[in-house]
Design a protein around this nucleic acid. Structure first.
Length: 205
DNA sequence: GACCGGATTGGC
DNA sequence: CCAATCCGGTCC
């Protein structure tokens, strides 16, 4: 489905999201995340993601079936934004996956700035810096695209925050590694559920 | 370049 | 009390 029937430049279909978070995480690489706002439009190519497998995953906010105001959107059908605050000051964007009551999601960790690059630089107070550094981390990309709690639960098929189908470049190579900063998560630490485009200068860390 | 601490707030 | 982070400082 994704890749096969997908149309370049179209919003990803609902069905794209209703799948295993690892599949969605891999297939989101190369897609274009777009943010429309009164200040203008800005977007980036997704170059790094992490899959969070919900109830059985110690690193997931929904581990053990945990429900709260924060995790609620993960229990809805996939294709929405799960936005949360971390370390008291940075926002992180996740894309929810799977059907209702299956709280899997994908953390978007890094973007290659694509359109509205100057707007992104202004929001990051990083005017004049290399574009590669504007959104190479989950907190940075949220700041660059002005993604915050106001976008919690936003439908990714709407007109505010959405993801466009794009083909992966011919030479793109997908690599996997353990997820970042989840040292507390016991056995889950070892799973290689972080995906990124090998050699891309916008991948974090 | 590597390493370290501080910022800052909601969730369990 | 700690967290799915970032930035600016220091000291190589």
């Amino acid at each position: 489905m994704p890749g096969s029937s997908g149309q370049q430049g179209e919003k990803l279909p609902r069905a794209f999201y209703l799948r295993d978070a690892r599949t969605v995480a891999r297939e989101l690489l190369g897609k274009e995340l777009v943010r429309e706002s009164p200040e203008g439009s800005a977007s980036g190519i997704i170059v790094e993601t992490e899959a969070y497998l919900g109830v059985p995953d110690r690193a997931s906010h929904a581990f053990g079936g945990k429900r709260s105001r924060r995790t609620a959107v993960m229990y809805e059908a996939g294709g929405r934004a799960y936005v949360y605050l971390i370390y008291g000051m940075y926002w992180c964007l996740n894309v929810t996956c799977r059907e209702e009551e299956t709280p899997e999601c994908v953390l978007i960790r890094a973007l290659q700035p694509f359109t509205g690059v100057e707007l992104m630089a202004r929001r990051r107070h990083a005017e004049g810096k290399r574009p590669a550094v504007l959104a190479n981390g989950p907190g940075k990309l949220c700041r660059a695209l002005r993604i915050d709690g106001a976008l919690y639960g936003e439908d990714l098929r709407g007109d505010v925050l959405y993801i466009l189908d794009r083909p992966l470049p011919e030479d793109a190579e997908i690599a996997a590694s353990p997820r970042v900063n989840i040292g507390y998560a016991g056995e889950a630490v070892h799973h290689e559920w972080r995906y990124f485009l090998k050699g891309n200068p916008c991948v974090s860390r």
